[in-house]
Design a protein around this nucleic acid. Structure first.
Lengths: 291, 291
DNA sequence: ACACATTGCTGACTTAAGTCAGACATATGC
DNA sequence: GCATATGTCTGACTTAAGTCAGCAATGTGT
């Protein structure tokens, strides 16, 4: 019985094929073949344009057409010509279609909830699933600008504060730190960037400006499941690009000696240590970078 | 953008469906439909008995038969009557079949190796995959008797020693501890039990006897990815059952105060603390259970 | 205005997978 | 020894999925 990496991966494949297979056939639970269900769900998720649909699901033009006709006959979908190009067609859900779509969503959610309820170590499982999903799909991590008050940003910041609390010997209390105003981290003064892997926010960085030529980097965080992939570096590069775009010439940041991997990154990417420039109680390292 | 458990699970499903789907179609890479390839692989993995095959792959009797005929026509498989029951049939690979089977194995291994090479955090990924696979298939954890020198047992023991080294403040050196003779943990004197989840050993326990009515429980270990599932308790129950079977009436064990969850388990399952009964340098807790 | 490209659609076809009923040989219990 | 159960096989059928060629409508460049 070999216990090498390869047999472990293959064990994983077997386990997941079975589980995901069960998920696939569950789509049959509503009396509709998988193909039709996939089309219905894609439309429900906003991919109504027939060409987009084909592309997303990887289907042949003829097959797509037939599946759409089937859903039309069921009264779940209507297709209308595209407003600006009459060759193209756009599919949309009818009232009945929306109902059926929600039924699939509920089914899918229920299955996920079920897994959570059955496994006594939900948190560990979720973390492991995040890591696997990130590893499998990591080409797809995109960096996007977001409102620092958006769900994605708040999720990252909450995790960031929690991690500071664990790692700083003093603990961490947001109220004592200078929590930047949202407007300082949005255009035109600054920016807030979120790294997203297939819908899950996995990292963030804030650029806090005051309208002048100096700005601060704040809140650099990468979720544990996405570490080791060079994402922090990508986030910093994106933040610097945004700074250049805003006409900023000098960047500063503060950090803490407990955050060793962050300090290492700064030192390796052209930041130089400077004197303390604020009276925030938590940081004990201060850096600057001129661009 | 919701970041709840359910959307995380669904993200995982998407990532894995894509990856495993690619793996599935790769089976077509050798010009044979998935069904036939699955049968060939199952036979290669020792499931030649036609009934076993059907059961394992979840196929209809007729379909199985047809797929076997197909493989026979290709010259990859021969079916012979079962030696003890002429109604049953057993399929076996021919020389060409074995070659084709190894080609599939190589393909599958290559894919796994590829994943490892592409992801910079192989160890973390493997651990996460183990945990997910265990969670998905945990109904299937079987407890089996094994030779303490078998691959599976050695794997568990190695992990066990490594964990002791990390957790005991003194470290742990097998050479200083009393490493039981293999024969003491095999019938008729004792037993060695391994918990196996779809081929991966995930826990073990040894019953070390000397031929008398007293025996010791040794080497209780559960791998991190399978903790929290009550497996240690199951292993202990299986060990006690084996002891009863061997006519043993008194069980003893030693442990260390650093292994808190183990001590808790012993106290909850009828073990009572006794005086030190050996001079092994590592243990500082001693228990006994009469049956 | 014309040739040509693009888009979606339809009909005819193939392959894979699976279901069902019944045939046939072999085992098992009484 | 006989009725019944079990295990495998075959033939006839269905469904899902996908491919391919060609058609009709619409857009684009010259």
């Amino acid at each position: 019985m070999p216990i090498d990496a390869i047999s472990r991966i293959r064990r994983f494949n077997r386990a997941v094929t079975a589980a995901v297979g069960a998920l696939d056939t569950s789509f049959l639970g509503r009396g509709r073949p998988l193909g039709a269900a996939r089309v219905l769900n894609a439309i429900g998720h906003g991919r109504g344009d027939v060409a987009t649909l084909r592309d997303y699901l990887g289907l042949d033009s003829g097959l797509t057409s037939r599946l759409l006709r089937g859903l039309e006959e069921e009264g779940l979908v209507v297709t209308l010509p595209h407003p600006s190009d009459a060759r193209r067609r756009v599919a949309a859900l009818t009232e009945a279609g929306r109902k059926e779509f929600s039924a699939y969503e509920a089914l899918s959610n229920g299955q996920a909830a079920d897994l959570m309820a059955r496994f006594p170590r939900g948190d560990d499982l979720l973390r492991a699933m995040d890591l696997v999903a990130t590893a499998f799909g990591r080409e797809g991590i995109a960096i996007e600008e977001a409102d620092p008050r958006s769900d994605a940003a708040v999720h990252c910041l909450t995790e960031y504060y929690a991690e500071l609390g664990r790692r700083l010997s003093t603990g961490f209390d947001v109220a004592l730190s200078r929590d930047p105003e949202a407007a300082d981290m949005m255009r035109p003064r600054g920016a807030f960037l979120v790294a997203v892997s297939d819908g899950l926010p996995v990292g963030c960085v804030g650029l806090k400006g005051k309208g002048g030529e100096v700005a601060e980097i704040k809140r650099l965080w990468v979720c544990p499941s996405a570490r080791g992939l060079g994402l922090a570096r990508r986030l910093m590069e994106a933040a610097e690009a945004a700074a250049r775009d805003l006409g900023i010439t000098t960047l500063r940041l503060d950090s803490n000696s407990a955050l060793t991997e962050a300090l290492q990154l700064y030192r390796r990417t052209g930041w130089i240590e400077i004197e303390r420039f604020n009276d925030d109680p938590y940081p004990d390292f201060f850096f600057e970078k001129r661009m």
